[in-house]
């Protein structure tokens, strides 16, 4: 179910001030894609994410899911939230139940599912994020490590089996291993058919996973396209205070040294290119 944003604007009002967080965003999220949303701090990424499941209402413009305006009168918002799962920044701060099991079951319970179905979903979600069911189910979520708590929170959303998964900086504050693990999960989910919107500051992460990238700056959509096409525009990204993946920088350096491997932005591609070049050099 594609999500279409039409001329979406959002203004925050606080006291006498109005902050324009989003302005005239036109963007389509295709079925099955893994779209990365990048942009400097305060560019409006989280605000955009909260429009995708109707938590925020646009000041102007529309959000269409399957061609239906999700904010129109009579639209079923709750049903929408089970279709579009949103994992907030630092989701571990939303844990509240006595046990990991109960916390993950919160979403499915709200969906009104039968007890056996809930159980199956909790097991499935825990398995997916790498939490050992028997070992973890009765533990208090508050005595877990930060990375484990993050996984419980993620499982809590996955257990609703949303068709679209929106992740707001899911790897912020995680150690490299926990981060890789989480990204693996996301990638696997996407390969199995879940549409994913990934908000991230880590360009290497984006380069590795995303099929398409959208760039926000000061509330406007300034660039959008296939990952490779975005990251070659190094200078424009730099102007917006964004970086390019390390691998891309390496490819560029190699180019300056006279070894042209093309505009690669994945470390593995460069490794392949280098290997081919070295082997080629040997035989020549």
């Amino acid at each position: 179910m594609p999500i279409v944003l039409e001329k979406l604007s959002h203004h925050y009002k606080s006291g006498p001030n109005t902050a324009v967080a989003l302005e005239d965003i036109d963007l389509t999220i295709q079925d099955g894609e893994l779209l990365a949303l990048i942009g400097h701090t305060g560019s409006g990424k989280s605000t955009l994410a909260q429009h995708l499941n109707g938590l925020l209402e646009p000041t102007s413009g529309r959000v269409l899911l399957n061609g239906e305006d999700i904010n129109q009168k009579g639209a079923n918002r709750r049903a929408l939230r089970f279709k579009v799962g949103l994992v907030f920044q630092y989701p571990e701060h939303q844990l509240f139940e006595e046990t990991v099991y109960k916390d993950i079951a919160f979403g499915p319970k709200n969906m009104g599912l039968a007890e056996e179905e809930i159980d199956a979903r909790v097991r499935g979600a825990m398995d997916r994020v790498g939490l050992e069911f028997e070992e973890m189910k009765d533990r208090s979520p508050f005595e877990l490590s930060g990375g484990q708590m993050r996984r419980v929170a993620l499982a809590g959303v996955l257990a609703m089996q949303p068709a679209v998964l929106v992740l707001d900086e899911p790897t912020a504050g995680l150690d490299p291993r926990a981060r890789d693990y989480l990204l693996q999960d996301v990638k696997r989910l996407n390969e199995e058919g879940t549409t994913v919107v990934l908000i991230s500051h880590a360009m290497d992460e984006v380069a590795r996973l995303a099929t398409r990238v959208a760039v926000l700056a000061h509330g406007k959509l300034v660039m959008e396209g296939p990952t490779a096409e975005i990251f070659v525009q190094q200078e424009r990204l730099a102007q917006m205070g964004l970086d390019v993946p390390e691998a891309f920088k390496l490819a560029l350096r190699l180019q300056q040294e006279g070894l042209n491997l093309g505009n690669h932005y994945r470390l593995s591609d460069i490794a392949d290119g280098l290997a081919a070049a070295i082997k080629g050099g040997d035989t020549a």
Partner: peptide
């Protein structure tokens, strides 16, 4: 602000 954020996060999980 914190309460607002938590309300949103739980609403996203279907809390009412």
């Amino acid at each position: 602000e914190e309460a607002d954020k938590i309300i949103k996060a739980q609403t996203a999980r279907g809390a009412d």
